[in-house]
């Protein structure tokens, strides 16, 4: 039985302290899983957060229905945040690579200059999301669950304990807000 399962069980047993241990555990699991999948697949592969998180859930907790909604909610809540961290770390290390150590290989000559802004964009989105969360914590959480956690709207709404219609309104608002915040960059 892995760490995550143990913690989820503890949460179900009402151990309030256990919830704080969940994030690091899920984070480790997801990272390990992502690296494994990357190594298995051909290089150049893209993994979607949805697939990754759901696969992690299946492997750790088991098929849906085996566990109650409460632990499922906890798991996906933590997973969304963990995915966000993983993506940001990747972006940062990519950026460092661009700027620092590996100068020789990454030399900026016009010939091989392609403007891939991916790491910058992930970081910019994260930054905007932090700002958004200051005034709209609930809507920011919705974005995290959907974009980083790969949850569907209905599931995310249920997890946040808001009606689906409200989630729809929030989702349109949040996307517009973030897009507006990012468009000037």
């Amino acid at each position: 039985m892995g760490d995550v399962t143990r913690i989820l069980n503890a949460i179900e047993d009402g151990d309030a302290h256990a919830a704080s241990e969940l994030l690091p555990a899920v984070y480790d699991e997801l990272r390990r899983l992502a690296e494994q999948r990357m190594a298995q697949e051909s290089p150049g592969q893209t993994l979607q957060a949805t697939a990754l998180v759901h696969e992690a859930y299946l492997r750790i907790v088991g098929p849906a229905g085996d566990s109650d909604w409460n632990s499922r909610a906890h798991f996906f809540g933590a997973a969304a945040e963990a995915m966000r961290r993983i993506l940001i770390e990747r972006a940062r290390s990519k950026q460092r690579l661009k700027r620092g150590g590996d100068r020789r290989r990454e030399e900026l000559v016009p010939e091989n200059l392609t403007l891939e802004e991916v790491p910058e964009e992930v970081l910019a989105l994260d930054e905007a999301l932090v700002r958004f969360a200051r005034s709209e914590p609930l809507k920011a959480r919705l974005v995290e669950l959907r974009y980083f956690g790969g949850l569907g709207q209905a599931e995310a709404a249920r997890l946040l304990e808001i009606p689906k219609a409200t989630a729809d309104r929030y989702w349109a608002f949040a996307r517009s807000w973030l897009f507006d915040a990012l468009k000037d960059r």
Binding site: A49, I86, F179
Partner: peptide, 20 residues
């Protein structure tokens, strides 16, 4: 916000990807 909504296309619609 409305003008952002108009031009944002599928922004954030599909979940984040981990690309190698």
């Amino acid at each position: 916000l409305i003008s952002a909504h108009r031009s944002m296309g599928g922004f954030l619609e599909s979940a984040a990807t981990v690309a190698d």
